[in-house]
Design a protein around this nucleic acid. Sequence first.
DNA 1: TCCATATGCAATAAAAAGGTTGCATATACA
DNA 2: TGTATATGCAACCTTTTTATTGCATATGGA
Lengths: 117, 117
Amino acid sequence: MARTSFKTSTPGKLHEYAAIFSALGDVTRLSIVAKLADGRPQSISKLTENSKLTRQAVTKHLRVLEEVGLVHSVRSGRENLYELDLRPFKDLSEYLEFVSTKWDQALGRLKAFVEES
Amino acid sequence: MARTSFKTSTPGKLHEYAAIFSALGDVTRLSIVAKLADGRPQSISKLTENSKLTRQAVTKHLRVLEEVGLVHSVRSGRENLYELDLRPFKDLSEYLEFVSTKWDQALGRLKAFVEES
DNA sequence: TCCATATGCAATAAAAAGGTTGCATATACA
DNA sequence: TGTATATGCAACCTTTTTATTGCATATGGA
């Protein structure tokens, strides 16, 4: 099958990956992701419960996650329900796999080169 | 085989993942990772070539990567060679997989619940 | 309608990140 | 020994992040 075109040299793509990594690079946001991984959309107030932060802080974190497509919100009456989106996760998985593969192949070539000399 | 014990509720672990995600959440650092994925350890000066940043800036980025174990350096004469380490990549892969699986299972249960009622 | 609940917006404030510059030190080599 | 190359350290600066607080608005219900 056709290999997915993958260019880490594409600046745009790198920015995209960096943005997703960055969004996940915070304990509070990882906690939010963990809560939302339960499958049930949850309101900002609900997500703020048991948190040491204020509702506003949580709101800002949710926006960061939303900007990179990790969550989306749906208005339901007076509350705003947030739900997880896995697409960015898949993207990162592919990126990690790409680098790992590149690394392994590079090491393989180096090894072969050493042995033949 | 025994499933890897995986607790996202463990604060320590979350901090660890967050630190790795954060280290990768920057275009410059992703570029460095891309260069090092070629397999050959490279000096700071080499990594600074073709960059718009100063050597000092690159040095700081390398330290960020080093702190979370994404790279390590080896002194060679007057230069300091940096090499990529894939372990953190594997960790993130497992984390991403864990959340994805949790999400899929949660959706499965919700779907079953809806259908039985 | 009256009130509690759930949010949104804006103004600050404190801390962390990202970069630069200047100066000192160490190593390779002619 | 002298000089160019490769780094390390520390002081600063600017821009982003992360969080808070105060005030305004909207919705659900008794």
